[in-house]
Design a protein around this nucleic acid. Structure first.
Lengths: 145, 145
DNA sequence: GTTTCATGTAACTTTATGTGTTACATATTA
DNA sequence: TAATATGTAACACATAAAGTTACATGAAAC
């Protein structure tokens, strides 16, 4: 499988949960939908649970549900809950820091990436789970402008 | 070594080339500076050569030089020459496309990432190699604003 | 309380990707 | 023609993500 499909898996699972309000879905059921493994689902949703985005309950009739309405869940919350980086890291070898040019390039790139990360986070905060889930919204993503 | 240090290697090499105007540096010399392997240097600079950012010459006194002044080389050109993505890919498993939710999430994420990519590219276009190389510019990266 | 079912998590395997390395062909200069 | 540098294929190695197995823990239903 591709690298870093975790965010995609998370969103996919959230859309499924939102599509069945009040009903809890098990890791196994979601894994079937997402064509992956129940443990993978638990690992991803576990991070969302720690961020109070979803709830997990054990035992019969247990499973996963949204902690709050889809209108109150932003993509930024999901993104930050997972500790994912949308931007690749471009750091150098640690043993390379003796070179002043390396340090300079690293610092310059780090500043750029930090700024860019904040920019993207702000954009993600504008989109709610309900925005990407509804059929009515087949127009796609709100444009970055 | 870390993931995706290619862009860092490229910038580091370009700064070195710019610091020695008119003088060609060999892959071996650059590899020593960058604490990596000559072949790695050739692989990275080879892509910049294809984009007419650097020139390579063989034989004695051969090596690498900038194709044009550092003021005329933008980070966007470097970035695009390398086919690098600053943003991670978040696509799903190909066999997963039967699910309409997967397709929808993928499309939505792809649109967002494409927009974000264009945004970042525009920012990168504002920065020239000469901006990050000069000692006078110890103030860091031009802020994204 | 016991059974059942679902999450929680550790441990390991598999797979993908980037990087390091060796080897050698090709081209250019003296 | 000898020396030197790039160009590139082929392979080894390291790392990280994902898949998998196994089992402990907890909650509901009977």
């Amino acid at each position: 499988m591709k690298r870093s499909s975790r965010l995609s898996i998370a969103l996919h699972a959230l859309v499924h949960l939102q599509a069945q309000p009040g009903k809890s879905l098990t890791s196994a059921a979601l894994a079937t939908c997402l064509m992956t493994n129940p443990v993978v689902v638990r690992r991803v949703l576990g991070e969302l649970r720690d961020a109070d985005i979803v709830d997990a309950s054990k035992g019969p009739n247990g499973g996963w549900t949204l902690s709050r309405p889809a209108e109150e869940i932003t993509l930024r919350q999901v993104y930050e809950a997972m500790g994912e980086r949308l931007l690749v890291r471009t750091e150098s070898d640690p043993g390379d820091k003796a070179c002043s040019i390396v340090r300079h390039v690293d610092r310059v790139m780090t500043e750029f990436l930090n700024d860019a990360e904040a920019l993207l986070a702000a954009r993600l905060a504008r989109t709610r789970l309900s925005d990407i889930a509804g059929e009515a919204l087949s127009h796609g993503f709100p444009h970055l402008g």
